[in-house]
């Protein structure tokens, strides 16, 4: 037993070393801009870059829109499937898992072909259309995570009883979903939202191929042209990812309080 535990420690430590080294390397490199001393110069340069500000703002807005659209698509669907169409559940789940199997680059290639300027829905013809396409693409990317989070959240509440109670009080479907179901799965939705944000904020492939001024392509551009700024950007991206995960942790810490009615 004791040797078992010692071996575990060694293996875990080796594993952690692999993860810690690139993080140290990244931080160290980001501080090397001024010759001979460590400085935060790379960060100041990056943060002062107007292109950084604009692309980052663009990606934040797209991320928020993705979350909103995702909630509108996923929550009613997951709710309705649980309430009325349990037979369809395996099929819906299968579809929600497809984005893990079909590479994003393939799907976006399909968008470009399907929604070109001469098609029935010429989304790529205008900037607004392309932005819409990007948001929907991101909703598709986040679908497996969002759907899982919401469906797990719905499992902990008694959807049927809540719905019937609301109906007896005269609530319509919109009211039921917005006022009854959504608040009850809010924490699950929030976890899904933060995960979505973490995925979308630095996404490269879709944004680059749809030619949008997003943070991902900016990162790539800096990476190809500068020495120390990329490391600083990587640190910033890592902090954002960490913050999103921390928010999920914080949110899930509140979860037992509101969903203790589990059956």
């Amino acid at each position: 037993m004791r040797t078992n535990r010692a071996v575990s420690w060694v293996l875990l430590a080796l594993g952690c070393l692999y993860f810690v080294l690139p993080l140290i390397g990244m931080v160290e490199f980001s501080l090397r801009m001024r010759r001979g001393v460590y400085s935060l110069d790379a960060y100041w340069v990056v943060l002062a870059d107007p292109k950084f500000q604009s692309t980052f703002a663009y990606s934040v807005v797209v991320g928020l829109l993705t979350i909103v659209v995702g909630i509108f698509i996923v929550v009613p669907t997951a709710y309705w499937v649980r309430l009325r169409l349990p037979g369809l559940r395996p099929y819906v789940e299968f579809v929600t898992l497809l984005p893990l199997v079909i590479p994003a680059i393939v799907v976006v290639f399909g968008y470009i072909r399907l929604y070109n300027t001469s098609s029935f829905l010429p989304l790529t013809g205008s900037a607004t259309g392309t932005n819409i396409l990007l948001v929907f693409g991101y909703v598709m990317l986040a679908l497996p995570y969002m759907y899982r989070a919401v469906d797990t959240g719905l499992r902990t509440i008694d959807v049927r009883t809540l719905t019937e109670a609301a109906q007896i009080l005269g609530a319509g479907w919109g009211t039921i979903i917005a006022r009854i179901i959504l608040p009850n799965v809010l924490l699950a939705v929030l976890s899904g939202a933060f995960l979505t944000f973490a995925i979308v904020i630095g996404e490269f492939t879709m944004a680059a191929l749809l030619n949008r001024p997003a943070f991902g392509p900016y990162l790539q551009f800096i990476g190809a042209n500068r020495a120390y700024e990329p490391a600083a950007l990587a640190v910033i991206a890592f902090v954002i990812t960490w913050a999103c995960m921390a928010m999920i942790q914080i949110v899930s810490r509140f979860a037992p309080k509101t969903s203790s009615r589990s059956n």
Binding site: L23, L195, F204, G216, P230
Partner: peptide, 13 residues
């Protein structure tokens, strides 16, 4: 979730 371009930067560094 720390994939994509920043990950490449970390390994390059």
């Amino acid at each position: 979730n720390f994939a994509g371009i920043p990950l490449a930067f970390a390994f390059l560094a």
